[in-house]
């Protein structure tokens, strides 16, 4: 209970509460405005991660008495401390349940984000070779075509020897594309052109640099379940945005959709594991694994449907004013939520 008096725990719980509120507001406004453009949806969703991290120190700086009892009692619209001190059962407070939630989120973050990202980074960095033109004719033709279609310089290509079908970009100032040989073999020319255009879109948009900044914020709010969900949604919006760029660059959305399905099926075939379900730990892992697979499948389906049956765009006007006014209103509202 006395931990509530420390600024850090106040920061953590306010960050959590503010994320919930922002996520709700953003979701409602995107629905009301029928905003479907991935870039704008992405910008709105970024508010869920950025505002809670920065708002608490900013508010404390502007009005140091904000955390005091007088403010919470007379001025605040909502005081989370009142809820955290509610008794759930024998000696168990809401505060304890909230700690468990934060603990579970931290474990999910470590197991599914932090450790896999670091492992993949070091593992892949070690096993790649620079592609020299003339080695794979199919790849040369695609790169030449993309060079003609866009004014963008084709980045360096690295080949990966791993069995899994992967393609990704890296490099902050000078981007490069990494692709596994298995993927080059599996996709036809049009499909491969689509995935290359998609990766080039990531480089054009400097997604890697932005991604690292975003990841830094994600690491800061590792305990926050709302940030966990929103971070994935932001990644998904980024992918959709690059899908659109790739589709307009190549003019072949169906070939790109086909490549998405192929990559998904290959990944599924490689990743199927028969986990023993005799003990509770294995059962939990099995359920988590299946949930992950299901959510991945839904995300891929969603991207494929967008390519195959593109919706008529609604495009509400003045998106920057919408974003600005929403941000201002949220900053104002959250000042009174402690």
């Amino acid at each position: 209970m006395y931990l509530l008096e420390f600024s850090f725990s106040q920061y953590v719980f306010q960050c959590l509460l503010h994320s919930f509120i922002i996520a709700f507001v953003i979701e409602a406004l995107l629905k009301i405005w029928r905003e479907e453009r991935p870039l704008l949806r992405l910008r709105f969703r970024l508010l869920v991660i950025l505002i809670p991290v920065l708002s608490f120190p900013l508010y404390q700086l502007v009005y140091p008495q904000r955390g005091g009892f007088g403010f919470r009692k007379d001025i605040a619209i909502f005081d989370i401390n009142q809820w955290l001190l509610l008794r759930l059962g024998d000696g168990i407070l809401v505060w304890h349940a909230a700690l468990v939630l934060l603990g579970v989120t931290t474990a999910v973050f470590l197991m599914q984000e932090a450790i896999p990202i670091l492992l993949a980074y070091f593992h892949r960095e070690a096993s790649k070779t620079l592609y020299e033109s003339g080695t794979i004719p199919k790849l040369d033709m695609i790169l030449e075509e993309l060079k003609q279609k866009s004014s963008f310089t084709v980045p360096r290509i690295f080949l990966l020897t791993e069995k899994e079908p992967v393609i990704y970009t890296n490099g902050i100032r000078k981007g490069s594309i990494n692709i596994s040989l298995s993927l080059i073999e599996a996709l036809n020319r049009e499909e491969l052109e689509g995935v290359f255009a998609h990766e080039m879109a990531h480089i054009m948009r400097r997604d890697n640099a932005i991604g690292w900044v975003l990841l830094l914020f994600r690491f800061i709010v590792f305990y926050n379940p709302v940030a966990l969900v929103e971070f994935r949604r932001i990644i998904h919006e980024k992918e959709k945005l690059c899908d659109d760029i790739a589709s307009s660059l190549t003019g072949k959305p169906l070939a790109f959709a086909s490549s998405l399905i192929k990559v998904f099926r290959m990944a599924e075939a490689n990743g199927v594991t028969h986990t023993s379900q005799h003990n509770l730990g294995s059962r939990i892992l099995f359920i988590v694994h299946n949930l992950e697979r299901h959510s991945h499948r839904v995300r891929v389906e969603n991207r494929v449907i967008r390519m195959v049956r593109p919706k008529k765009s609604h495009n509400p006007p003045y998106p920057h004013i919408r974003l600005g006014l929403t941000t201002l209103s949220l900053i104002l509202l959250l000042f009174f939520v402690v």
Binding site: F24, V25, L29, I32, Y318, L325, T326, S329
Partner: peptide
């Protein structure tokens, strides 16, 4: 825009 933001904020 202002009406929709006000509505959502008031609900919150």
């Amino acid at each position: 825009i202002i009406l929709s933001i006000t509505l959502v904020m008031c609900t919150i």
